[in-house]
Design a protein around this nucleic acid. Structure first.
Length: 142
DNA sequence: GCCAACGTTGGC
DNA sequence: GCCAACGTTGGC
């Protein structure tokens, strides 16, 4: 498979937590209602890896998800021009990486959670992705 | 629960 | 095409 791209996706744990994704095995990632986030979804391809951030209650990156399908229309808004993909679980972090930790890490100064707090789907560099994995004390499954 | 940040909308 | 008003998000 081609080299994956990396993303940050956000969800409120009370709406759809990572544990729910792990339990479901896959879910349609819907509800994005922001043009920039939509365009980011449209740039996704199967095999891309996503850091999964819990906003509000947790304020921490808690795991890694992966893109399962090419982006298509958001089935929750069939008459509007939005996008969605199916996501599957990859691994939960051994240790969640708190927003405060990310903000306190100099090399993550440009991480999208810091610079673009409200963007729900954002690209992440391979370097940042690896750093967050390390902070989460987690390795990707082989 | 408050408020700051920011994206979107709509009037001009 | 600008910009003020508004609504929503999300950290604190």
């Amino acid at each position: 498979m081609a080299k994956p791209k990396y993303w940050l996706i956000k969800s409120e744990p009370s709406v759809y937590a990572y544990a729910q994704l792990a339990q479901d095995g896959k879910t349609e990632w819907t509800g994005v209602r922001n043009f920039e986030a939509r365009n980011n979804i449209r740039a996704m391809k199967p095999g891309d890896l996503c850091l999964y951030y819990h906003s509000n209650e947790d304020k921490a990156v808690v795991g890694v998800a992966q893109v399962l399908t090419p982006p298509g229309p958001d089935s929750t808004a069939p008459d509007e021009d939005w996008a969605a993909t199916f996501m599957g679980p990859v691994t939960a972090f051994t240790q969640p990486v708190a927003l405060a930790t990310i903000k306190a890490t100099a090399s993550l100064k440009d991480f999208p959670l810091v610079t673009r707090g409200r963007l729900s789907v954002a690209p992440v560099t391979a370097t940042h992705f690896k750093q967050v994995l390390k902070l989460g004390k987690t390795a990707l499954p082989a």
